[in-house]
Each structure stands twice: as structure tokens, then as C-alpha cells.
Computed example of a mutant assay.
Amino acid sequence: MKLTTFVDIAGRISQDAREADRITAAAICLPGGALDHIRKQVPKELPKWRNATDEDVRLVVDVVLREALGVGVYSVEKTAPAWDTFWAEAFHMRAETRGKISFIKAPYQIKCLMFGRSTTLACAMAIKSGNVVRSAARQRGLSTAEILVLDDEIDGVDNVAVFKSIWERMNGQQLLTESLGIRRNFVDVRLMTEQQDPLLLLADYVAGIGHASASRADVLVASRVGTECVRRQQERLIRVPQYHFIRKPFALKFSEILAMG
């Protein structure tokens, strides 16, 4: 089955945890053959989450509930001391290489982690909810052809190349999923903006909703979106079987995240 997953991140990827206590990624898994139909449901002037209104949020959630095969939201809390240790290790590694290996920067590694966990969760929920079905020709198995569309937040030609290679290598590292009769095939990874593909706004809004609902900090202080709106729309999302929200304290070491690549 052809799937296209759109991913975005909410929260500031920086060591400072004041007024920014977590980072949240959302992945929206959509049927690849229906993208034009779904794009027509997104208003041309729909703003990004940071400029949205309550009505904009309700409209986006309507589209997600109607069209998404799977939705994965993965949120990590900037938990001390693990968070500070991670950044210290990243700074040390950066100094040792004298800045020559750009893709080992801490923000880059965190983006890779968030993108990877949320997209895997979205695909898993699409399968678990029954929205991705086994074809008649493959009753004993399921095979996907997946395109990933990510908000263009990976800077630099070398970083982009390394990031894409990570996903390409995943095509050959699927012992667990294949043992369950599932074969995921990543056919393309695209870094785009909302102007290039407005369906990224679906992930932008769902990440914003999840981030605001889980944060202790008042992340809506400068927003036109109200806390009651976030509560109502989050409740709508968690009621459906294709949605899952995982919250974790940050507990990984920099060396462990680097090894994922």
C-alpha cells in the first residue's frame, strides 16, 4: 500500500528548558493516492500553528480525523540531568572534531530521533487500527511503499544527505517488522515547506496541540489559540483508534542517539 507521512516538530530544540520544557513531534500517515483530494480540504490561507485561531484548529482536526490512516505523536521532556548531560556530550564531540562533522550537532540528532519515533508510531497505528489492510495477493503479509515529507528543518547539504541515508538503510534493517509479516519500504524522503505542500500543516497543528496539552510551561501565551480549544481537540484525537500519543522523559545519551544513524 502506498503511504505518505507528513511530520513536524513543536517546541524549541535548545538546551535551555525554561518556558520550553519539552519537544513534540507529530506524524500524519495518509493514503498516497488521495493526497490531492485531501489538499483541497485545507484552506489556501490557513496559517501556521503559531498564527492559528480556535476555528483553524477545529478545521484541521476535522480533516485529520476524516482522512488520516494513522497519527503518531511523540513528546520528550527536557528532563535533568539527562538533558544537560546529552548537550555536554554533544559539545565535547563537536569540539573534538573541530566542527568538521556537522551532522553530529545535538539539534540535528534530536530531530532525527523525533522524526523517527513519530513516523514509526504513525505507521504502527495505521496498521493496528486496520486502516492499512493486507492485499488479497499477500494474505500472510503486508507491504508498504512509504514517502516521508518532513518540515524543512535539516540545514546543510551534508546533513540532508546523511539524514536521507539513515532512512535508506532502514529498508534493510527490519527483522522485527518482517517477523510480524510487515515489510516497510521507504521510497523517498522529502524536505519541504508548508508553502510547497500544505499537508505539512496537518502535522504542524497536531504537534502544536499535543505540545500545548503536555507542557507545564504556558506555550500558548502569545497564541490566539485558547487552552480550552486545545483540551477539546486533544480529546477528539485521543478517542480515535488511529491516534496515539507517547510522552517520555529524555533519558538517552548522545552516543546512543548517534549510533541510531
Rank of each mutant, 00 (worst) to 15 (best):
V240L: 05
R138A: 15
G208C: 01
M114V: 10
V132C: 10
N171P: 07
A145S: 13
V160D: 12
G181Y: 15
K164A: 03
R216A: 05
V219C: 02
I147C: 07
L237I: 06
R117F: 08
I246M: 11
N185I: 15
T227M: 00
Q196C: 10
V149H: 04
G130C: 12
K253I: 14
N185W: 15
F254K: 02
V132F: 09
G208Q: 04
Y108T: 12
I209F: 04
D158I: 13
L175V: 14
L176C: 13
G156M: 06
T177G: 10
R247N: 10
E146L: 09
A124L: 10
G130Q: 04
M125C: 06
R239Q: 03
H211T: 07
A124G: 05
R140M: 15
R216M: 08
S143W: 01
A214P: 08
F245S: 05
I166V: 10
E228P: 00
I246A: 05
A212D: 03
Q234C: 06
E178D: 11
S179A: 13
V230K: 00
S118G: 04
L202K: 00
E146M: 09
A251C: 03
Q195H: 11
S129I: 14
G208A: 02
D218C: 04
V221D: 10
G156I: 14
A251F: 05
E235A: 13
R138V: 14
V221N: 05
Q233C: 05
G141D: 14
F115D: 03
A207W: 00
Y243E: 02
G172W: 09
R216Q: 12
D204S: 08
T120K: 03
V133S: 08
E153D: 14
A161E: 11
F245I: 01
G141Q: 12
